[in-house]
Computed example of a mutant assay.
Amino acid sequence: MSDVDLRKLRYFVAVAEHLHFGRAAEQLFIAQPVLSRQIRALEEELGAQLFARDRRGTALTAAGEQLLADARPLLAAAEALQRRVIRAVEGTQRFTVGFMPGLIVTAAVRTLTERHPGLTVDLVRTGWFDQVEVVHDGRVDVSVVRLPVDPHGLVVRPLYTEPRVVVLPADHRLAGKDAVAVGDLADEHLLQDPDTVPEWSAVATELGTDRPAVPVFHSVEEKLEHVAAGRGVMFLPLSVMTFYTRPDIAYVPVPDLAPLQVSLAWSSVRPVPLAEEFALLAAQ
């Protein structure tokens, strides 16, 4: 078997994510016939059919599913390698920290730079969808994350926990309370994955009420807009409450919700100097 071409793997991942050769070709800025030839070449090199194509569309085969699972971390590792080489060429000593909205890393960053003169610490804001992706692809050395995350390929070091609050429209019947119970919110429309709030899911299921589909959001800002418009409620970490203040929403503590775990994550497949030291500083 010949060595796998990373370019072909990128082409494969694009088709696998779109399940449409035309859209994948547009994303890759190549002609569709060229993309089809590259995928056929990859299938010949691997000795396996990766896609099943018929009148209904394109689907991954079992071999394709396996390759997709393996290709993503491999491509991420290749990108991380390229970034590290560029750093070495530049001759700069850099340490990059990813952080979620509401999580403050200033004290740890200051102490680290004081301990290591000449070190440049860069900061990258992350979100729920890329808080560990930035570690895998090398954009950051460490990432301050909120669990749960997929621990595959990571070292995950607990830092601390933080309580959660419910976010309500300012004119909501419970908006002026000092605290509310999860049961008080059982009949509300939840604007997030119910699996992330099992305490709410348990009491909501008991009511047996049909629930509308949960919208797909890509940022906290989008979620807060929907809450302010009266379309539902959501649960957020307490630190996010201090990060986003606005007059048309209210934050109310929910004592019977389990706190969220904040951790530091870094790659387990490549050395990350200073990761352990930063973890100790961030936990203080």
Rank of each mutant, 00 (worst) to 15 (best):
P169M: 06
V197I: 14
A186D: 02
P198N: 08
P169E: 08
P158E: 06
L174C: 12
V203P: 03
V166D: 05
R146T: 14
R146N: 14
V156M: 10
D195S: 11
V145A: 02
V166N: 08
P169W: 01
P163G: 06
L190P: 05
V156C: 07
V145Y: 05
T161G: 04
D141S: 09
V166K: 00
T196R: 09
T161F: 06
V180L: 05
V165Q: 04
L174H: 12
D171T: 13
T196V: 06
G208A: 03
G153L: 06
A204C: 06
L191M: 12
L190G: 08
V144Y: 01
V182D: 02
P198C: 11
P198M: 03
V149I: 15
G208W: 07
S201W: 06
V197W: 01
A181V: 00
A186M: 00
P169D: 11
A202R: 12
R164K: 09
D184Q: 13
Y160M: 13
H172T: 11
E199H: 07
H152K: 13
V156R: 04
E199A: 15
D193Y: 11
E188P: 01
A181Q: 10
H189V: 15
K177T: 12
D150R: 08
A202P: 00
V167K: 02
D210E: 15
P148E: 04
R146W: 10
V149L: 07
T161E: 13
H152N: 11
D195E: 12
S201G: 09
V156D: 01
R173N: 03
T205S: 14
D193S: 13
V203A: 05
V182I: 13
P148L: 10
V214L: 08
P158S: 12
L207E: 01
D150K: 04
G153W: 06
H172S: 12
P198R: 05
D193F: 09
T161K: 09
A175S: 14
D150N: 15
D150V: 11
V165R: 04
T205K: 12
T196N: 07
K177G: 02
V180D: 01
E199D: 09
A170Y: 05
D141A: 13
V142A: 09
L207P: 00
L185A: 10
A204H: 06
L207I: 00
